[in-house]
Design a protein around this nucleic acid. Structure first.
Lengths: 252, 252
DNA sequence: CTTGACCCTCACGTAACGGTAGGCGGGAGC
DNA sequence: GCTCCCGCCTACCGTTACGTGAGGGTCAAG
């Protein structure tokens, strides 16, 4: 029922120092002290800490969190509703960032320069732009980087050249099929579209059919991408786009 | 081709002071200066800033970002891959947090106490736990709270009582249908399951069929939830769960 | 040639802790 | 009963990533 700082810290994934700090500034003062001055946290304190952690994750400054939690107008359920809402907004924003990265990656592959707008629009400051914060705890340091590095960046220079070679090989075969007069929804074209998708998945990121059709739309909608493909062979952008769509429909 | 601090700051959604700071610590030094000492940023500088912003959003400390970006072993494409990966991990974690909130909300509605474990396991520090950071820029202050408040917390005490009344009314009618001997996949039971889903959507959060079946599973898997429903009427937890599943299958 | 917006370099201030020092308390093993 | 070590306590200084002026040049427009 009553816990010590150490226990609370361990359970909640924060340091003892953090709890001391929250006590100092009055954000979370334990409901009682032992005879010898030890802090004693009860279940209500834990619930408060839970809300604090969520609001912190959402980037609220401590002072503001104190104001929110001490606002008599909002009960615990209201906090949960608000956190749910804010988390959803934040997830949507991160998903936009993922899309932006995918866009930047395609541009990078095809040597297409980005406008400053395109580089940063995802950080757009004018609207539902939430702030985030720490949560780090134990893989601070370069750990996050190393971990991701182990998975994603274990490509050597040789791998990179192989990737380029595979892409060029795919390009040659695609142009062949296109020149053969086969329609964009022919099995041959769709197979190459599927191969295109799997090349992305193997070398860059998990490319779902949905994401793939997104790329296809971009190839015809953005003139710089269109130009890139048209230079390889006129009509290629539209042809590739249609092949990708057909492939997604029949396979998904 | 060459931009001033102000232009870059505006485009990238950071303050001039931030760019000064990045220059001071050598994280992003503009490629040149004008005759009168003005900083001039070119497109390569913008690309670097783009990566900085993404890594910052992912919570990397500036020093680490400098090390990563200056690592000759990783090209721009590698950074994009890594950012894509880390963002995906982060999104998954936030989605877990959303689920945890939904769980906490159900528990709160039914007056079920949470264990410390359950309160904080989503902050679990032992594994893919990424750190996040700012991004705030212009709706710092209490703006985020207010905005969310306008949408989600405009319920008055009266509304809250109405919600409770609606819930109790739903409960009564559900017990009736159950007592009538109608099977859990009967239209009457499914209609009440659907109503249950819409009550959540109206009062708490957008409850998809998928989320709803998740709740249904929890009602039978977690003994505390089961006990709550069993006390209303024996067999209710399983019956309600089945009705929700049937409803989701036929409507979705 | 003035005015307002924009740039420069200090330089101190702040938030949210991290880390360590110096000292008390408590229970387990001798 | 004594020792040991671990966990708790209260300061107090350090750090990161900027915020916020102060004091003073600059540049394009009118």
């Amino acid at each position: 029922m009553a816990h010590t700082v150490g226990q609370v810290a361990k359970a909640a994934g924060v340091t003892v120092r953090t709890l001391h700090h929250y006590d100092e500034i009055g954000l979370l003062s334990p409901s009682g002290r032992s005879g010898t001055g030890y802090r004693r946290y009860d279940d209500a304190d834990l619930e408060r800490l839970q809300h604090i952690r969520y609001y912190r994750e959402l980037g609220f400054p401590l002072e503001e969190i104190a104001a929110i939690l001490d606002d008599p107008a909002s009960d615990p359920a209201a906090h949960l509703r608000r956190q749910h809402e804010l988390l959803s907004v934040r997830i949507r924003k991160l998903q936009e960032m993922v899309t932006a990265i995918e866009f930047a990656m395609e541009a990078s592959k095809l040597n297409i320069p980005l406008t400053p707008q395109e580089r940063f629009e995802v950080f757009g400051d004018f609207d539902p732009d939430v702030h985030a914060e720490e949560a780090e705890q134990r893989w601070g340091g370069t750990e996050a980087y190393r971990e991701s590095n182990r998975r994603v960046s274990r490509y050597t220079k040789g791998d990179w050249l192989r990737n380029k070679a595979e892409n060029e090989d795919w390009g040659r075969r695609f142009v062949e099929v296109m020149s053969s007069g086969a329609p964009a929804d022919s099995p041959a074209a769709m197979d190459l579209a599927e191969e295109h998708r799997q090349l992305i998945s193997r070398w860059f990121y998990e490319c779902s059919y949905e994401v793939h059709t997104g790329l296809a739309d971009m190839y015809v909608a953005d003139e710089r991408f269109t130009a890139y493909f048209e230079k390889i062979k006129p009509g290629m952008a539209a042809y590739l786009s249609e092949a990708i769509h057909s492939n997604a429909i029949t396979r998904a």
